[in-house]
Amino acid sequence: MAAWTDLLLILIALTNLAMTGLSSLGTCIRVMAIQGVMLGFVTIGVRHDAVSAHILILVVGVIVIKGLVFPRLLLRGVREANVRREVEPFIGFTMSLLIGTLGLPAAIWLGSRLPAIDPTVSPLVVPVAFHAILIGLFLIVSRKKAVTQVLGYLGLENGIYIFGIALVKEATILIDLGVLLDIFVAVFVMGIAIFHISREFDHIDTDRLSTLKE
């Protein structure tokens, strides 16, 4: 049981690394979709001692929402808004990949600063979760397009979700909050906002939104 969970966790870390180096917007969205599906299975792996109906609903919800619905909406958004297919970073791809890789030791260090958690949980969970959060934040600040920022936000959210399933054993309602409400914020509202941005300016670069500066 533990072996494939660890494998999935490593794959999640790799998809995050890939996000920093990929240049095609469509591929980025698909990579995040794969990550969403893997996230669903990791839930079972991490909570294998107590797979309840509640957990199963959560798993299905995560896979459907993060693996299917969001990617579809984002791909459609990109198509309809006629966004150029490249990611357009502020920080170059090589540099981004380097920063993403350096994120790993940083995440391991951050994880070691936290008090020890339940020994039945894989030791990979905390570093992978921190890594996802760091990469998510990095993508939000280092990419020009609104769509890429949403992808970064999804990555950040996934990292927090991994923390949730690994740490919060009893109050599962807290984890549900994360899944249900972050969906609402991240894509619904931002999707609507993107829609307006693309409508009114015919582009969805956030660096063109730069009138309000000191």
Partner: peptide, 9 residues
């Protein structure tokens, strides 16, 4: 719009 985007994000 820019302000709202920043606020939300």
């Amino acid at each position: 719009l820019e302000a709202t985007w920043k606020y939300l994000l």
